[in-house]
Design a binder for these strands. Structure first.
Lengths: 188, 188
DNA sequence: GTCTATATCTGGATAGAC
DNA sequence: GTCTATCCAGATATAGAC
């Protein structure tokens, strides 16, 4: 039975639209992405699309959030391996990496809608990863002398840096680089 | 004595303008940076400025190149330490990091003027660093089992990723993170 | 080499009808 | 909720005079 208010049909429609936008960006990339073109691809008018998200930038942040959801859902297994698997998976949708990279650059402005999103992403991401590493230390599967916060910050920054470079120079193998770096960092 | 042709006064003036633009971006950041504003800060009209660089994007690439020159000039001492020192120095000019990050995002388009610049930067940067590491291996000051190309790629990507994050969340200490990562990566 | 003036245009946002 | 129509701002690039 359909819910009412802000959790009813409106939200469903919003998610549905978001899915379509996500796919469109994944296919066509960020550059070829005016609101008008997205609207067309989605099957709405420009103002119809903006009705749901208010502005272009907020729409993009919503897309990144949606993507995170599916990343988290795909996050299976132990910490470093699962993380690398997500990066490997990302290499199949360069359009989304492109979007992320642009938003990351824009987010340095504290007034940009992506600013808070990025901060939150860093915080939650590194916290979660750090916690997982602590568990490994307790279980004895990770050297106890590792600063888990620093290690988590390191691997997130490395992954982001590799992705930005990979967009420009696809000859590098992100997943292999990450794996190798992690192995060396932790001393096997 | 003044040279003639493309190596004469025109070039000098160009470098002089470039210096002024560089300082302006360093002070005011990338966001507040239309060609008109740069022109004003430099003391030229908009078209006067564009006369030298053709387009906004090419101007920005020229700024990055100029910055690289001064980075290379400041690159003193052994490889990893000098590299970290450059990153430390960058933290004093967030405006330039911001510019770099935006250009890096834009460079994923193969037709963007920054595309070739970035590729070249990656290639030369990692090659140079890798070579320096090989020297260290020969001298016995670096473990011989390290893949120097991979290590160079890693440290460049990590530095770029840390910088992008630092712009948004200045609580992290880039230089310390880099140092620590390098130490662990190389096994002290 | 430098300026003034202007062309052009792209694109996001808004008003208001249905 | 969705569309049509319009507005408006901002920015780059160019033409042509001096």
């Amino acid at each position: 039975m359909a819910k009412r208010g802000p959790y009813g049909k409106g939200i469903q429609r919003r998610e549905q639209i978001l899915d379509a936008v996500l796919r469109t960006i994944a296919e066509r990339g960020y550059s070829a992405t005016s609101v008008a073109e997205l609207a067309e691809a989605v099957g709405l008018s420009q103002s119809g699309l903006l009705h749901y998200f208010g502005s272009k930038e907020e729409l993009f942040v919503a897309v990144l959030r949606k993507r995170d959801e599916s990343d988290v859902a795909a996050f299976r297994g132990s910490a470093p391996e699962a993380f690398i698997e997500v990066v490997r998976r990302n290499a199949e949708v360069p359009g989304l990496i492109e979007l992320f990279t642009h938003m990351q650059a824009a987010a340095s402005d504290p007034h940009h809608p992506a600013h808070d999103y990025m901060r939150q992403r860093y915080r939650l991401g590194t916290q979660g990863f750090s916690y997982a590493l602590q568990q490994m230390q307790s279980a004895g599967s990770l050297s106890a002398d590792i600063d888990t916060d620093a290690a988590a910050t390191m691997i997130f920054a490395l992954a982001d840096g590799l992705q930005a470079r990979w967009l420009i120079d696809p000859t590098i193998d992100m997943a292999t680089q990450l794996e190798q770096a992690w192995r060396r960092y932790t001393g096997d």
